[in-house]
Simulated assay, not measured.
Amino acid sequence: MSRDIPSGSYPRVMEPGPPRRRPVDGSGTGCDGHPEAQQRHPGDGLHHAPELRPGQTDLTPPPTVRAHRLQTDPLALSLPDDHPLIRRQRKPSGLRLEQLRDQPWIVIIAGRAARQQFDQAAAEAGFTPRVQFETENYNVAQSLVGTGIGVAMLSRLTIAPTPGAVHRELIRPRLHRQIYAVTAADTTLTTLAARLTTLLTEVSAELARTWAAHPVAD
């Protein structure tokens, strides 16, 4: 099963200041130090145009554009380092999405393709996620996880070492997104486009080999 999930933005990691740990049951409701995060309340009614068509599983560019598939980016989970599921593990191991059905979630804002696909994955796992916070940025999501207020699903490529947070492989369902480089079909005026695409392909292949040798676990 596959989900194509956009990467979101990548500004500087926002430092939350002195960590204020909150119970993972979501009883704390602050987002101190994270102005890009929005606390979720019933009826917020956040609406944003999707970045990809819902359900789109491949990129079909117009004739004037060529898409070069670079990377299959698997999805993973981020949890507070003192989460009960983490404490019970004798060694780092993957988790099923359904194991987090009762957890507060930190998610991409409503209306984005990544959010739609996360909601669909949760529905297929048999639950409706309890959304604690929404954000446009995976770095912010991981920082919020590090404060202990919830868990998050994110792509392997967006994982960053984060105080107070750990990452685990998502073993069921196996989800991933596809990453492309897009160039003009006619590269007469952009002669270096082919070379750049080749370099990106080589880097992506090396990254895939590294991921295969080192599963998500920290």
Rank of each mutant, 00 (worst) to 15 (best):
P62I: 04
G45Q: 12
L144E: 09
I179C: 03
Q178E: 02
R130F: 04
T128E: 11
E51K: 06
I86E: 13
L46H: 14
P50D: 09
M14T: 15
A123T: 11
P163K: 00
T198D: 12
Q71P: 00
H83G: 05
G150N: 07
T201G: 09
Q39Y: 07
P23R: 12
P61N: 06
A194M: 07
T198H: 12
E124L: 08
Q38V: 15
F127E: 03
P104N: 04
A205Q: 14
R88Q: 13
G146S: 05
D218I: 03
E169Q: 14
L175R: 06
P173W: 01
Q71F: 07
M14R: 15
R3T: 10
S93W: 06
G30H: 15
N139G: 10
K91Y: 13
P54C: 11
E15S: 14
T60M: 09
G43Q: 14
G146V: 02
T210E: 10
Q117V: 01
W211P: 03
W105T: 04
D32K: 13
S204M: 02
R20Y: 10
S204C: 06
H176P: 00
V24W: 15
E15N: 14
Q178W: 01
G17D: 12
R174G: 00
N137E: 12
Q103N: 07
A184E: 04
T188C: 05
P16T: 09
P84V: 08
L189C: 04
Q99L: 08
A113P: 00
Q120T: 14
G150K: 07
G164E: 05
R101D: 05
Q120E: 10
T60K: 11
D73A: 00
R66D: 01
S9D: 11
Q178A: 01
E134F: 05
P104R: 06
P215Y: 09
P42G: 07
Y138D: 10
T72C: 01
H41P: 01
F118P: 00
S78C: 13
E51P: 03
R96P: 05
A184R: 13
Q56W: 13
R96M: 10
F133T: 08
E134C: 05
V151W: 06
V216A: 10
Q142N: 05
M153W: 03
L200F: 06
A122S: 14
L79S: 05
S7H: 09
R20E: 15
T210L: 09
I86A: 07
L77C: 04
G146T: 03
T72Q: 04
S7L: 14
T187W: 00
G8I: 09
A141R: 01
E136A: 13
I108H: 05
P104V: 08
K91M: 14
G43S: 12
R195Q: 12
Q38D: 11
T147G: 01
D82R: 15
R174P: 00
P16H: 02
A185E: 08
P54K: 13
P23T: 13
E136Q: 14
L97H: 03
P104Y: 02
A160E: 10
A205P: 02
L46Q: 15
R156E: 09
I179T: 08
R168A: 04
P173T: 02
A194N: 10
L97Q: 05
T191Q: 08
L144S: 08
E98V: 10
P215A: 11
H47F: 14
R115L: 02
S155G: 13
P42N: 07
G33A: 07
V131M: 02
A152Q: 00
W105Y: 04
T197G: 06
H167C: 01
E206N: 06
Q103C: 14
G146N: 03
V216L: 02
P84F: 04
H41M: 12
